[in-house]
Structure formats: structure tokens, C-alpha cells
Design a protein around this nucleic acid. Structure first.
Length: 596
RNA sequence: GCUCCGGUAGCUCAGUUGGAUAGAGCAACUGCCUUCUAAGCAGUAGGUCAUGGGUUCGAAUCCCGUCCGGAGUACCA
């Protein structure tokens, strides 16, 4: 039981005994005592004034006296205005250490048979272009949230829906046919996804030129966008593909194959993975059947041009297209099919979609459509909606090439890590392979932490020149502190100093107690992160802890301490900080180097 | 136009279910490497929490208005 709960329960009891009134748990505000004030835990007594009919000070005195008498871990108290500051017995804090020491998974809950199963969909790439910075945020958030949910005792299935078909794919295919000259990853040396992306950009270039030409001839803009030869050809390809035309399907397989090879490399670098992959090309027909069934059951309707629509105006939403007039599927069609397949495949309690906030509307509609089709899943969907990554130059647009490419970004950061290490004279003793692995860990740590430390819901700014930082509130700072802790532990082991779990101390310093308090908050941070789907809570927790430790480390000697019981305690403290931070960073997908 | 999200230091971001004097990092300036790793530590400076009202013992936090920014808004995905 957490200290917060203990104090809350005791306070509820105190109010009942002293004032004969019932209060519920969230009326009892328990918080950490401000640093400048003496005490460990503070109770805000303002909410009880109504019940005590006394001044804040007297009410706090009443409660403080009661708690001191009845709760064994409360040693003493002081009162400042309406704030009751309790001093908690040191042994309570010291016990945290043995908790951490004896439990490598400190802070995480175990999965049981009756745990909820949460399916987390993330990544969901289109196979017509390489991954960029926006996808990185998606992938990192998805992976991290899955880890955080596991740590909260959920069964998790990580899934990826690959958008491997559709008009956008046909655009790359058409462009490659027209202007590709048989270029392949092998003969060009280009990574497969980059090669295909090149032709997606190529398509857009020609398409734009054609539109301009048509407008020149006096054709209306909208009409020109519809009639440009490139788009007409791409549409034809889509029709041929849906009709399973052999040549088209063959080209599609080849080009998608190139993309998958490329994606595998990027996923591996980012350290993300999936338990189950769905392909839109398998799910869109299921979706189309569902839409047609809905049409039969008059849940949806058909327009004169034979396109199929859902009318959601009764639910405060709009009309939504489900099948185009030429009978081909849209994004929504396949999402219905994918949902059906997933709920057939797994006993899903909650379905989490990690998808950008630009699709908020899409998911509102999806939930409603599933309900209309008679499934109860609409309520089990949760759109984890994260903000966009913005560049100083504005929004990223793949077609216009104004993107920060994922592979380039990572390689760039590895280079910076390498150069910085050389400059600082670090890692010179390591072998080339070990050093290179560490550079990657640092580079990825910097990138992942930078992205995950901000509130997922908010848009964030990424300045390629300025954002890459290894000092201050960054991944490398946390990794560095961890490496120093490991270094101390190595040196202790070298001197044959072993840690004795049985602490025997007369007193501990304020900094040491502060560290113990912070460590004790880790399980609460994990839970909060899970409740709010927010890796940022873990990131900022880890930073605070590490910052605190660095201050401690600076002015408390560990191995130089002559009193062996104090040295033993500090070693244990350092070790605990190390493992908590490691556990925390693991939830963010960040690896910790033994030395750096 | 309508709907949703956001606005905290020069910049990037924290800020617990409303609580005490709003916090970090970066950038600037000042100290500290014969001392367990200086990717560090200590310090100075930097704020009308967009803005105007309201709710109350108490508001960056909750409610309403205004301004600014972003996203979405019927055959892109």
C-alpha cells in the first residue's frame, strides 16, 4: 500500500472520529511536502473546515495529533496555515530500498489470466513512401504505451495495419512504370522504401505540371485535377488491381516488397515490433462486404452515381462516403473490415488506435459506423490521438519532399553522438563494436526521449539543428547518470564490497531521504502513465529522479565514505536509483549503456 | 462558416483530482575537473501563466466571452 493511501485512510478515520463526518478519498488531498518546509507528507485541511467548524490551524492540530497517536509511521507534525505537514518515520523510507533491491520488476504489475486484453495499433504505414519524423512519433508512442500497459498488468497485442493498397500506392506504381526505367533497389543502391517514395514524389511533380497545363488551356481547376492523365492512369491501375489483373498485382507485389525490406530496417533501428500484422489488402474486402450488408439492411444508402454513404447527421456528424462511385474502397471501408477481423481473432477488451489527431473525426465516425452495423465495439475503441510534429518551416508534406526522413535523422544523430564522444574523450577504451553500439544507444536515447517527454496530445516543435542535444533534460543525461552509477557499482565489486540488505543507520541526510521518497513514487508514476496513456509522465519522472541523484552524487561520497554502514546504504541507494531509472526508461524503449 | 485541440521565461517543455513563493533544460553571464565519469554541480538573470470577466478560503488548472495558432470539415489516405 502506498503512503498516500495509508495517510488518506487514516485521515478519513480521523475526520470521522473527531468531527463525526464521512469524507471520501478524493476529498483528502495528500501531497509531498514542499522542499523548504519541514515534513514529508502534507495534508490540505481546507476541505474539512466545514466539518470541524474551526480555524484551519486548529483543524490541522486536531488531525495532526490524531494521526501522530494512531498511525505508527507518523513521527511528528507541524502546521502552516491550512497545511498539515507530517514527518514520516525514516524506516518507512528505508524499507523502499529493500523493496527495490529484492524485486527487479519494481513498479510493475503482473499479468494474470483475467487481465484485460488491450490491442494497440500503431505505425500503420502507407507503402508508398519511407517513414518520416511524424511516423517516428507514432512508432515511439505506440511501442511505449504498449510497454506501459504491460507494466500495468494488461495483456497487450501490438498490431500494425499496413496500408498496402489504394490510390496512393497506384500513384507510385504508375510513376515507376512511366519514368522508372526499371530501377530497383539492387541496381540503384537505394533503400527500397526510399526508391518507391522517390516515384511518389515523381508522380506528384508530373501531376501538378499536367494540371497547370490544362488550366492554361482554360479548363477549370477542379476539372483539371480530375482529368490530368496521370491521375486517370492511377485510377485505372486501382481498378485493375481490384480486378486482380495479373500484371498489376505483380508490380504491386514487387514494389511493396521493396518497401517492406526498407521498413524492416527502420523498425529494427527504432527498436519497435509487432505481434500481429494486418494488411489492408486482406481486410478491405471484409470491409466492403460489411458496407454492402449495411446497405442491404438500409443502415447505409446509395446515391444515383452508385456511391455508398452513411448518414450520421443524426449523431451530430456528417455524411460519410464508404464506397466510391466506381465501387472501390476508401480508408473507412478497410478500417471497418480490419476491426471485424481483429475482434474475431482476439478476445479484445479495449482497442487502442495510436493515430494522429488529424484523424479525430475519422475515429468518431468509425465508432459510430461499427455500432450501426450492430457490433458493440464502438465503445471499446479508443483513439489515442497525438499531436503533430512541426518543423520551423511548417508542416511536413511527403509529396512536396518537406519531410525529415526517419533513417537520415537517426544516422545524423548517431554521427553527432560519435563526434561528441570523441570530443569529450569518452569510450576510447571500448572496442570499435562496443563503442558503435553505445553511440547508437545514445543517439536513439536522445531521439526517443526528446519525443516521448512531451505530452502526447500536444503538437510539438522539432528543429533539426537545435533539437539534437545531449545535455540537460535529455535521454543521454539519464543514460550518463546510469553509467556513472554502474561505474561505482563496478568499482565496489572490484574492491570486494558487497551490499548488505540489512541497513543499520542512525540517521540519513535530507538529500538521501528525498531520493528515497522519489524512488517510492515510481509505481504511482507507472500507474498514472498507464491511466493517461502518457509516456511523458515516465520520462519526466526519470529526469527528476536522476537530477536529484546527480546533486546527491556530487556532494556525498560513496566509496570514499569511512563509515561502512553509511557506505553500504549509499551503494544500495545508488543501485536502487539505477534500477528504477532502467525500469522507467525501458518503458520508453530506451536502452541504458553500462558505460559512456 | 462550423467542430475539435492548443496558447506558461527569448527558445523547447514540465506543472499531480483547484493548494503554500509557477519549475526544468537550452541560449546568456559567473564559479567548480590532483577528489567515485565535468554529457556534471553550484549560482545570476529571465514571468501580467494570450486576454477580459466569473466561480471560492484559494485559479496556470474549473466556467463564459474575446484574440492568436493548429487540425478536421462528403468520392486523399
Amino acid at each position: 500500500m502506498s503512503i498516500e493511501t495509508i495517510i488518506q485512510d487514516a485521515t478519513i478515520e480521523a475526520v470521522k472520529v473527531l468531527y463525526g463526518a464521512e469524507v471520501n478519498k478524493n476529498q483528502v488531498q495528500v501531497q509531498n511536502t514542499r522542499k523548504e518546509v519541514s515534513g514529508d507528507i502534507t495534508i490540505v485541511v481546507f476541505p474539512f473546515l466545514r466539518l470541524s467548524k474551526k480555524s484551519p490551524e486548529l483543524t490541522a492540530e486536531d488531525l495532526g495529533t490524531y494521526l501522530k497517536d494512531k498511525v505508527s509511521i507518523v513521527d511528528s507534525f507541524n502546521v502552516i496555515k491550512g497545511f498539515l505537514n507530517l514527518d514520516i518515520n525514516e524506516n518507512y523510507w528505508l524499507n523502499i530500498l529493500s523493496d527495490v533491491y529484492s524485486n527487479p520488476d519494481f513498479g510493475t504489475k503482473e499479468v494474470s489470466d483475467d487481465s484485460d486484453l488491450v490491442m494497440v495499433e500503431y505505425s500503420s504505414p502507407n507503402t508508398n513512401k519511407p517513414l518520416h519524423l511524424g511516423h517516428i512519433r507514432n512508432n515511439l508512442l505506440g511501442y511505449s504505451i504498449a510497454e506501459i500497459l504491460k507494466a500495468n498488468g494488461k495483456k497487450v497485442v501490438k498490431t500494425n495495419i499496413v496500408n498496402d493498397r489504394g490510390i496512393h500506392i497506384c500513384k507510385s506504381m504508375y510513376a515507376w512504370q512511366q519514368w522508372g526505367n526499371g530501377e530497383t533497389p539492387e541496381n540503384s543502391g537505394l533503400k527500397g522504401d526510399h526508391l518507391v517514395g522517390k516515384y511518389y514524389v515523381e508522380f506528384d511533380k508530373h501531376y501538378k505540371a499536367e494540371i497547370a497545363e490544362l488550366i492554361e488551356k482554360g479548363i477549370e481547376k477542379e476539372e483539371a485535377e480530375n482529368q490530368a492523365p496521370s491521375i486517370v492512369a492511377a485510377r485505372e491501375l486501382l481498378l485493375k488491381w481490384e480486378a486482380k489483373d495479373e500484371q498489376t498485382v505483380e508490380l504491386w507485389k514487387t514494389m511493396n516488397g521493396w518497401v517492406y525490406e526498407g521498413f524492416d530496417v527502420t523498425y529494427k533501428t527504432l527498436g519497435v515490433d509487432f505481434d500481429k500484422i494486418y494488411y489492408e489488402s486482406d481486410t478491405y474486402l471484409v470491409g466492403r462486404d460489411e458496407v454492402l450488408r449495411g446497405l442491404d439492411e438500409q443502415v447505409f444508402y446509395r446515391k444515383e452515381d452508385s456511391s455508398v454513404w452513411a448518414d450520421l447527421s443524426g449523431e451530430g456528424l456528417d455524411q460519410k462516403i464508404l464506397l466510391r462511385s466506381d465501387g472501390t474502397s476508401v480508408y473507412m471501408t478497410q478500417d471497418i473490415g480490419t476491426a471485424k477481423m481483429r475482434f474475431n481473432d482476439y478476445p479484445i477488451d479495449k482497442m487502442l488506435y495510436v493515430v494522429g489527431n488529424e484523424q479525430n473525426y475519422h475515429f468518431q465516425v468509425l465508432a459510430k459506423l461499427l455500432d450501426k452495423l450492430g457490433y458493440g465495439w464502438g465503445k471499446d475503441l479508443y483513439h489515442f490521438s497525438y499531436g503533430m510534429v512541426e518543423l520551423p518551416s511548417g508542416k511536413m508534406k511527403s509529396r512536396e519532399g518537406t519531410v525529415v526522413d526517419a533513417d537520415d535523422l537517426v544516422e545524423g544523430m548517431v554521427k553527432v553522438a560519435r563526434d561528441m564522444s570523441a570530443e569529450l574523450g569518452k569510450l576510447d577504451s571500448l572496442s570499435g563494436k562496443e563503442a558503435e553500439d553505445t553511440f547508437r544507444m545514445i543517439a536513439l536515447g536522445a531521439l526517443k526521449y526528446f519525443i516521448l517527454k512531451v505530452d502526447p496530445r500536444k503538437n510539438m516543435m522539432f528543429n533539426p539543428e537545435e533539437s539534437i542535444d545531449f545535455n540537460g533534460n535529455t535521454g543521454p543525461f539519464i543514460q550518463y547518470t546510469y553509467a556513472r552509477i554502474k561505474s561505482v557499482l563496478r568499482k565496489a565489486a572490484g574492491k570486494n564490497i558487497t551490499i548488505d540488505k540489512n541497513l543499520n543507520l542512525s540517521s540519513i541526510s535530507a538529500k538521501e531521504k528525498e531520493l528515497l521518497k522519489r524512488i517510492s513514487l515510481f509505481p504511482a508514476a507507472v500507474q498514472e502513465a498507464g491511466d493517461n496513456y502518457s509516456p511523458a509522465i515516465i520520462a519526466n519522472y526519470c529526469y527528476d529522479l536522476v537530477k536529484e541523484f546527480n546533486q546527491f552524487y556530487h556532494d556525498h561520497s560513496i566509496l570514499g565514505e569511512s563509515d561502512t554502514s553509511i557506505m553500504n546504504f549509499r551503494l544500495m541507494l545508488a543501485s536502487a536509483v539505477g534500477s528504477v531509472v532502467q525500469n522507467g526508461m525501458k518503458l520508453l524503449g530506451i536502452e541504458m549503456p553500462e558505460r559512456m
